[in-house]
């Protein structure tokens, strides 16, 4: 069984892309379209990584990030924040609130893969180039 990744993203197409990428890394994706649903999912079965879109419509994803970090039971949890707001201050704020990684939107698929692997401590892709199906198969 691969690592579990919770994707908190309210934009359907982006959720689809992230779901695809996570599966390709051999991990088990879960989806939540709002912070409340995400909190419930985390409580039910804590994932290894949460990918949070900071620009959620109703409540900031950074709130979720902060509350997850405040929970002592989730010590080993890794958090990746995605955001279209990527001024220096936005990035610093994400890290201050407990993010382990920050990826500006739009992102390159390769960056996303590399970040996912780094956070989940997966093996680097063979040859250091683009990840291939063979490597994960």
């Amino acid at each position: 069984m691969g690592r579990s990744v919770l994707i908190v993203e309210d934009h359907e197409s982006m959720a689809l892309v992230l779901d695809h990428l996570v599966r390709r890394e051999g991990c088990e994706p879960q989806a939540a379209s709002c912070p409340d649903a995400a909190a419930q999912a985390v409580a039910a079965s804590p994932p290894d990584l949460v990918v949070i879109d900071a620009d959620l419509a109703r409540r900031s994803g950074l709130d979720l990030c902060q509350s997850l970090r405040a929970d002592p039971r989730l010590e080993g949890l890794r958090i990746m924040v995605l955001s279209a707001r990527c001024a220096r201050l936005d990035i610093e704020r994400a890290f201050a609130l407990g993010a382990d990684a920050f990826l500006p939107k739009p992102f390159a698929i390769s960056d996303m893969r590399a970040t996912l692997r780094a956070l989940l401590e997966l093996d680097p892709p063979a040859g250091g180039g683009k990840p291939t199906e063979a490597h994960h198969g």
Binding site: H11, S13, M14, L16, V17, D55, A84, K105, P106, F107, I109, M112
Partner: peptide, 8 residues
């Protein structure tokens, strides 16, 4: 979000 999804 639209362009991020499209480019991805």
């Amino acid at each position: 979000p639209a362009l991020s999804a499209l480019s991805a």
